[in-house]
């Protein structure tokens, strides 16, 4: 049962393997260049497992002891995870003890795959999601640890491998669009509110405003969107 789940899960993690090994190694190399032992990138990758926050943490750790700033920054950068949780409430409902780890490891990339990809016939959704989560988590920890150990010895000369992550999200966004008209209003709202927030607030501060705009728009247009989603939803399922 486990073997079948791993076999089904692994191919879906390949793009994430490329992206996470590379990004994780970049993070480890960055930590090493700032004088940290490899244990730091290893432990933060293991326990924080939120890429952009870990990069930000590298700078925080070099400054003065500022616990409130650390909490605030983590909230701002990671608040988007709340949306992933809301989206997975149903799919992760009856997962037993696995649920704790599944929620803990719900990063952007893992969320995208476990939300979008249906496990093949005969493979348990819980195990399928579990192995996708474990594999993604391991890639990140392995990348960060190796980067921390070998530092600048690791040749990271080729730039841009992390585009695999962008490509992953583009594919899943496209799948949302191909799934039918029912998703179109949401897709447009997501793109437009994020772009507006980006133009107004700039790249480092746009996430929270984008989330707020998105919630406002989805709330304001609830009636038409919901009836569209319910109507078309029946056709598909």
């Amino acid at each position: 049962m486990h073997i079948a789940a791993i076999k089904a899960a692994f191919p879906h993690t390949l793009p994430i393997m490329a992206g996470f090994l590379f990004l994780g190694a970049s993070y480890g190399v960055l930590m090493a260049s700032k004088g940290f032992s490899f244990l730091f990138p290893m432990m933060t990758s293991l326990f924080v497992f939120a890429g952009s926050m870990e990069f930000a943490l590298a700078n925080l750790l070099l400054g003065a002891f500022a616990p409130l700033e650390a909490v605030f920054m983590a909230l701002v950068i990671n608040a988007r995870h709340i949306f992933y949780g809301i989206s997975m409430l149903d799919k992760y409902r009856a997962m037993g003890i696995k649920k704790l780890y599944l929620i803990f490891a719900l990063c952007d990339e893992t969320f995208s795959v476990v939300y979008q990809v249906e496990p093949p016939e005969g493979v348990d959704r819980g195990l399928f999601s579990l192995y996708i989560s474990i594999l993604d988590h391991s890639y990140w920890v392995i990348g960060a640890t190796l980067g921390g150990i070998f530092g600048s010895l690791i040749p990271l000369g080729i730039k841009g491998i992390d585009f695999a992550m962008t490509a992953l999200f583009v594919v899943i966004l496209l799948e949302q669009i191909l799934a039918g008209v029912k998703n179109l209003p949401s897709v447009l709202i997501g793109l437009l509110t994020s772009l507006c927030a980006l133009l107004i607030f700039g790249p480092s501060d746009f996430l929270i405003p984008a989330m707020a705009f998105m919630l406002l728009a989805l709330t304001a247009l609830r009636r038409p969107i919901d009836s569209l989603m319910r109507k078309k939803g029946r056709d598909v399922s």
Partner: peptide, 24 residues
């Protein structure tokens, strides 16, 4: 309302993630 968000949020979130990746 939460059920509605669970349905309507994901397509919007993937839009946000694409913008997030390309923000810089």
């Amino acid at each position: 309302f939460l059920g509605y968000l669970g349905r309507a949020l994901p397509p919007a979130v993937f839009g946000m993630l694409v913008v997030y990746c390309l923000k810089s």
